[in-house]
Design a protein around this nucleic acid. Structure first.
Length: 949
RNA sequence: GCCCCGGUGGUGGAACGGCAGACACGGCGGACUCAAAAUCCGCUGCCCGCAAGGGCGUGUGGGUUCAAAUCCCACCCGGGGCACCA
């Protein structure tokens, strides 16, 4: 048996054993003189919760369910701030839902296949499995210190054969339902390494490791027909997702209506897709992508050399690089011509890399008069420009006088049968000129109405080792068959060597030699599956990760599905989230949920619409960035000319005085050898000529400009930048409760921001104050009813605020509200002017409201205050509207929109009384004495605005 | 280049189109202390003013509105994504 499997099984067994063991609760400490010892409290409660199985989630058809999910992490080695930031608020939300009465499932697992493990193999000689599994162990341990309610019995790990058996099975289903197919795609091919490189491994067209050139090359690969679902993927009605994610996916899919038109050439018909068939009469040339099939055949002898050179150079640039440089138009004439089907004109055919082979048909008709890119191209190469839309009520367009393409509305001109038709800004048939053009094309058999999508089919083949094997056999006769379920999983062989070149699966006869179902010899597919495929169904595996007979248990699925809330980074806006949606739709159509639907119906739950989308609600968190850093203090010697210095010498000296050199200041920015230095005289540009002396005292040897540290505003945390903050150190110093509270308090969750290690002290003080409040043996001294009533009101207002904030993931304002209640309770503790019951209600409320955010200290204090059961089984407090209600409110009186007075009024004041009160104000009388009141806007009870002049 | 998001005090941030700056950090002043730390109390957007009060102020410029951080238009700057990082 394969060791990876053994390892994962044994670790699960070990975890199972801890169940049922008796533990001593952390009590029996004297009430007074207790200091807050986060280490003892947190570790003992984590252990007790696990021993008692507090967070085990099991089916209970009598209770409403809530499936909370946070994005599957990659086991990179150490848990970092970003993991805490993603997971602990999600945990708080899951805990909140639990206290609201839901039966909550909140699982965790690992997306364990991927490139970093192979990089470790190549650069450090560690087998990907030997790198990945210990990482998982370490991260799982670190995650436990967060105090989350993950149900570890549900853990799923994508590189475990018990998991990828079902990834493979899903692939076979896709194959059998004609969703998986073989096609051609461009790849980054390294001729040196004889392998395909990931985009991130290619920098400026060179392999980042070897520095050798990388070329773009077509290769036969596996795809999923996600485009078949394009229209359904554009429908977001059933799900509650952020608008920006919906917009990004919609744009990514890029549905556009138009026509396909054929331009005959000597080498055969050239098909283009255009959203503007109405401008066909203005098409003066055509452009093919360098990789287009017809380039070779259309190229004439005298242009052949130029075209081949251009195609070769273009092949070295990635798609992204081509788009980035799209401002400067490059291209070459093939020498060939095509016939414009609407008017029989002969138009030249060019090759240019602003046309992408992957979009549309890889060829365009160019209408320079009405498309900006075509216009620039035409002007660069002196090609004809023919306006066919004349703007209404403006000077008619004249080709030679145009500075830019005209893309607005108007009237068709110079366009034969559709002359005079109106052009609007509408897209598709809603635009009269488009409708007329399409009708004409269809009638004359010159083209078809067509909907094009920017979305391309999902390329799932990877020429790598560390991924799930593709369960496919290539028979010697050239046909293909899938590996049947009883032979799954196709296990990834362990005994492989890495040389940084092509996947070791290629040269592994034990793996690649196989026998087909008819007994003949076959070659096993050596491409592995995209890791996005592993993460496109993992929430189903969480339902029953140990189950061997199917991908998931229909009983579990019928109760828990679909996922109710999904949280994760917005960087996954398009790819992961679109793939996940596609997967569910495909699984639905392949009948994967049939048993689940039947089970649901048995329990009286309506399955309608529950299997169209994976995640009903989605919320994104931002990113935690590295701390701000000051740049090096530089002493520059050299010739100053205005705001520019050519340096003769540069040295780094943190203590240099302002007059230590020609100019002294902080390095703000650096581009190559040009520095921006901010000093007493503003920011100056300093050029450091090659070879001029540069000295950094802290770095021995010969220094160069690349070693200078510039000012950092914000920057991604990464090991290479040296700005990583280790959560473990913070947990040891302050405790998980403080770290959790700080992460939720310090940032707007959706936005994230730069980490600041100093501000954590505020959250630490808050937690310690909670401890002081929770352990206080309160005795009133001067209890008075008004003080008690005020504290009760604040207590109930806090419930309202925290409840509303947690509902919508607004952690920072929830914590702020709790800090305010803390301040009120400390005030009461100092003055001892509230009744014992009021105090107790305030404290118990504070603890329960804080429990989802800081689960350990609240649990400990809850028990200390005499509650036998866990606070995490308690219900969330409910506010009493009548108690929370304010009696009076400060009404603002404005004159011409500026605040001039404030009046305390009853909360129920009506408009007439509010206006009267405002007009009666001495300030208002004084300031309006010499003016005429024109208008009074009254918004009781908050505001009166008097317009006067 | 294209798509999406953001820009508010010294800092993180708060604010149904209706009191800009809640809450917190930092800073300043004070108390306690032999002293320091911790803790506690007060002040803290900027400018003018002894004060009362006034002016200015949410990246920049314009617009809508009785009223704009919030809505609209243009621009500047920063971040995320762009299909083999996950």
């Amino acid at each position: 048996m394969w060791y990876l499997q053994g390892r994962s099984r044994s670790s699960q067994k070990a975890r199972g054993h801890t169940k049922g063991r008796q533990s001593t609760p952390p009590t029996s400490i004297a009430w007074h003189s207790m200091t807050y010892d986060h280490r003892a409290i947190e570790s003992s409660w984590q252990k007790r919760w696990e021993d008692e199985g507090l967070y085990r989630a099991s089916i209970d058809w009598d209770r409403p369910k809530h499936y909370a999910l946070t994005m599957l992490p990659y086991p990179s080695g150490d848990l970092h701030m970003g993991h805490w930031y993603a997971m602990t608020p999600s945990d708080a939300r899951a805990r909140y839902m639990r206290m609201k009465g839901y039966n909550v499932l909140f699982p965790m697992g690992f997306d364990a296949f991927g490139l970093p493990a192979e990089n470790a193999a190549v650069t450090r000689g560690i087998h990907p499995a030997h790198w990945t599994w210990p990482n998982i162990e370490r991260m799982r341990d670190q995650m436990r210190s967060m105090g989350t309610m993950f149900d570890w019995e549900r853990e799923a790990i994508s590189c475990d054969p018990t998991y990828y058996k079902w990834t493979q099975w899903l692939f076979t289903q896709m194959f059998e339902h004609d969703i998986a197919y073989r096609g051609q795609a461009m790849v980054n091919w390294s001729p040196t390494l004889q392998t395909v490189l990931a985009n991130e491994q290619v920098i400026d067209g060179l392999d980042e490791r070897t520095g050798q050139p990388v070329i773009q090359q077509l290769m036969e690969q596996w795809f999923f027909r996600i485009t078949r679902y394009a229209d359904e993927l554009l429908d977001f009605d059933a799900i509650d997702w952020p608008d920006n994610i919906v917009a990004q996916q919609t744009n990514w899919i890029g549905r556009s209506e138009g026509a396909k038109v054929e331009f005959p050439t000597d080498a055969g018909p050239l098909t283009v897709f255009t959203t503007r068939p109405d401008t066909l009469w203005g098409a003066t040339f055509m452009v093919l992508a360098p990789e287009h099939d017809l380039v070779r055949e259309l190229t004439t002898e005298d242009q052949r050399e130029a075209v081949e050179t251009y195609v070769e150079i273009a092949g070295r640039r990635s798609e992204l690089e081509r788009l980035e440089g799209a401002d400067e138009k490059t291209g070459v004439f093939t020498g060939g011509y095509a016939t414009n089907p609407v008017n029989g004109a002969q138009v030249p055919v060019w090759v240019a890399d602003y046309v992408l082979v992957s979009y549309g048909t890889g060829a365009i008709m160019a209408v320079p008069a009405h498309d900006e890119r075509d216009f620039q191209f035409a002007r660069t190469f002196g090609l004809d420009i023919t306006p066919v839309i004349q703007p209404t009520g403006a000077e008619p367009l004249v080709a030679d006088e145009m500075d830019e393409a005209y893309v607005g509305p108007g009237t068709m001109a110079n366009s034969g049968p559709i002359d005079g038709v109106e052009v609007t800004d509408a897209k598709g048939r809603a635009n009269p000129s488009l409708a007329a053009a399409i009708d004409w094309l269809v009638e004359h058999d010159a083209g078809d109405e067509h909907v094009n999508y920017r979305l391309r089919d999902w390329l799932i083949g990877r020429q790598r080792y560390w991924g799930s094997p593709t369960p496919i056999l290539h028979r010697d006769d050239g046909t293909i068959e899938v590996v049947p379920l009883e032979d799954l999983p196709v296990v990834l062989p362990e005994n492989v060597e890495f040389d940084g070149g092509r996947s070791p699966l290629h040269d592994h006869p034990d793996y690649s030699d196989a026998t087909a179902s008819d007994g003949t010899h076959a070659r096993r597919e050596t491409d592995t599956l995209d890791t996005f495929m592993c993460s496109s169904w993992y929430w189903f595996r969480y339902l029953s990760p140990q189950l061997d007979g199917s991908a998931f248990d229909p009983e579990e699925a019928a109760y828990w599905l679909p996922v109710d809330t999904y949280t994760g980074g917005a960087e996954h806006a398009v790819m992961h989230l679109l793939y996940a949606r596609f997967f569910v739709k495909a699984m639905r159509d392949m009948g994967v949920f049939d048993d689940t639907i039947a089970t649901m119906q048995e329990h009286g739950r309506d399955p309608e619409d529950l299997f169209d989308e994976p995640f009903m609600m989605l919320r994104n968190q931002g990113q935690i960035l590295g701390e701000e850093r000051t740049g090096d203090r530089l002493v520059i010697d050299g010739e100053r000319d205005g705001n520019r210095i050519v340096a003769s010498a540069v040295r780094v000296d943190p203590d240099a005085s302002d007059d230590a050199g020609t100019y002294v200041g902080e390095l703000m920015r650096r581009t190559e050898n040009v520095l921006q230095v901010k000093g007493s005289d503003g920011t100056l540009t300093v050029e450091v000529p090659e070879g001029s002396p540069l000295d950094i005292a802290t770095i021995p040897g010969v220094n160069d400009v690349n070693q200078l540290k510039h000012h950092l505003e914000i920057q991604r945390m990464s090991k290479s930048k040296g700005n990583v903050v280790n959560p473990d150190d913070l947990v040891i110093a302050h405790g998980a409760d403080t770290v959790r509270t700080y992460l939720m308090f310090a940032f707007e969750w959706q936005k994230g921001g730069p980490w600041d290690s100093h501000n954590i002290i505020g959250s630490r003080r808050f937690i310690e104050d909670v401890w002081r409040i929770g352990t206080e043996d309160y005795r009133p001294e001067a209890a008075d009813d008004i003080a008690s009533k005020n504290l009760r009101r604040k207590t109930h207002q806090t419930i309202q605020r925290v409840d509303a904030d947690l509902e919508v993931f607004k952690w920072n304002t929830a914590v702020a509200a709790l800090m305010t209640l803390r301040n009120d309770l400390l005030e009461a503790r100092r003055t001892r002017n509230v009744s014992e019951e009021t105090w107790a209600e305030g404290v118990d409320t504070l603890l329960r409201l804080l429990a989802p955010i800081a689960p350990h200290i609240t649990e400990d204090l809850w028990h200390k205050r005499g509650n036998p059961a866990s606070i995490h089984l308690a219900t969330f407090p409910e506010a009493d509207e009548a108690v929370a209600r304010e009696d009076t409110v400060t009404m603002v009186v404005q004159i011409n929109g500026k605040v001039r007075d404030r009046i305390e009024v009853g909360i129920d004041i009506d408009a007439a009384a509010a206006e009267a009160a405002a007009m009666a104000s001495a300030r208002v009388q004084e300031l309006t004495a010499d003016k005429t009141v024109r208008k009074v806007i009254v918004r009781p009870p908050n505001l009166v605005n008097i317009v006067a002049n």
